[in-house]
Computed example of a mutant assay.
Amino acid sequence: MTTGTVRIERAPDGIWIIAPDDAPSVLDDAAGIDVAVLEALGGHLSWSVLAEHAVPAAVIDDVDSAQNWLWAVFGEEVALAVAAGSGTEISVAPARPRVAACARRLAFALWAARWWPTSTVDALPALDEELLNGEIATLVEECDLLVDGADALAPAAPAVPVRPARADDYALAAGVATATLPSALVLTRGTTGTDWRRYPPGLVDASERAVAWEVVRASGTTTVRVSIVAAPGLSSAVPEHLRPRASVGTASGTVDVSLSLSGDTWSGVAAAPSGSEAGVSVDVHVPGFGTTGSADGGGAEVRERVRNLIRQRLLRAAATTPDDGPDAPLLAEIEAAASDSDF
């Protein structure tokens, strides 16, 4: 059962905030990759998928509409406090625990559709999109008391073209091999990950070892080469506006590297920026998409925590013991675990 204590605050602009301590909300400066959000009648609910507690944060801009579900998710005491315009710390006791659990499950399924860290390098299998969308549609119906807006609509078709998965998609080695001419001198090379917030899902492998770069000197010219493991099943017919690019930087400057897809790899080459012989940074992004902020909420540490969460959920999904708890694996997770020998 979803229990705990929440703070109730009213912002100067009339928005109500109901949240447990340290819970993320849609009012945060930037959403972390661990934040699941559900658009509800009169507001939004949000959870961190990494948090142990199941009590959401709520940001309400229409109290009358939100009263339809406040009592169900948070309980009568919270609903009455908001209606009366008073209250500070109040205990949560959902009047309809199944609705509260369904809302969280739907939010997680929507989160998985955006942030699931599919990786051939890390052997994290993709979710079957049709199966996931089917479960989302079912959960939307079960949450009709509260769900609203775009989250109340049937899932849309994928924005990124995909091809049928191949058996060897999960057998690729970490990193990407790059061919270097015998006469070329490799000054430095390295591997890194990407900020998942900088491009749509389904384009790039989610591993911290998905990006390989090297700075090469040949025929009096210094160039930087970037190779990136593509997301499993990606089709070569990616529209121009969705193709990722790589910004390669040093303390002295940055160059933009155009990437093209060949097989399972995005790759590109450009003149190296000054100082590149000491190493470079690589920022993979789709121009105009996502955040350009700090690592807070999307850096390597939280990405690894998300991967660990997914590994744990896949192990649960592969277990023979029935799991019918409110946080039980999704059908798509069960299918993914069954299709991958690592789980």
Rank of each mutant, 00 (worst) to 15 (best):
T223E: 14
T265L: 02
H285C: 07
L259W: 06
T320A: 13
L309P: 03
V282G: 10
S276H: 02
E301D: 13
V248T: 03
V229L: 10
V255H: 06
G288K: 02
A218L: 12
F289N: 05
G268V: 05
S235V: 12
V286S: 05
S260G: 13
S235C: 08
S219E: 15
T223Y: 00
G298V: 14
P287M: 01
A237L: 10
R225S: 14
Q312C: 09
E240C: 01
G253M: 00
D283P: 02
G297A: 10
T265M: 02
S235I: 09
G249R: 10
V226Y: 10
T320L: 12
T223G: 09
W266M: 05
E240I: 11
A319E: 14
L315Y: 00
A230E: 09
R305Q: 15
G233V: 13
V282D: 02
R307E: 10
I310T: 08
P273F: 01
G298R: 13
R225Y: 10
A278R: 12
R303I: 06
V229P: 01
T291L: 08
T292M: 04
D264F: 04
A295Q: 09
T265Q: 06
H241T: 14
T221A: 12
G263A: 03
G249D: 12
E304P: 00
L261V: 13
P232T: 13
S260Y: 06
G233H: 11
S281F: 01
I228E: 14
L234W: 04
L259N: 06
N308V: 13
E301Q: 07
G293M: 05
Q312V: 07
V269Y: 00
V257I: 05
T291F: 00
G299R: 01
T250S: 02
A246M: 04
R313I: 02
D296P: 00
G253A: 06
L314D: 09
V248Y: 02
G293Q: 11
E301M: 01
H285S: 13
V282F: 01
E277R: 06
S252M: 11
P273W: 03
S276N: 05
T223Q: 11
S236E: 15
R303Y: 05
S294L: 10
I310K: 02
V306E: 13
Q312I: 03
R243D: 07
D256C: 04
L234V: 15
S252E: 14
G253E: 06
V229N: 11
V224L: 07
S274T: 12
S252A: 13
L242I: 12
A270F: 01
S267M: 00
P287N: 08
S258Q: 15
P273C: 01
S274C: 03
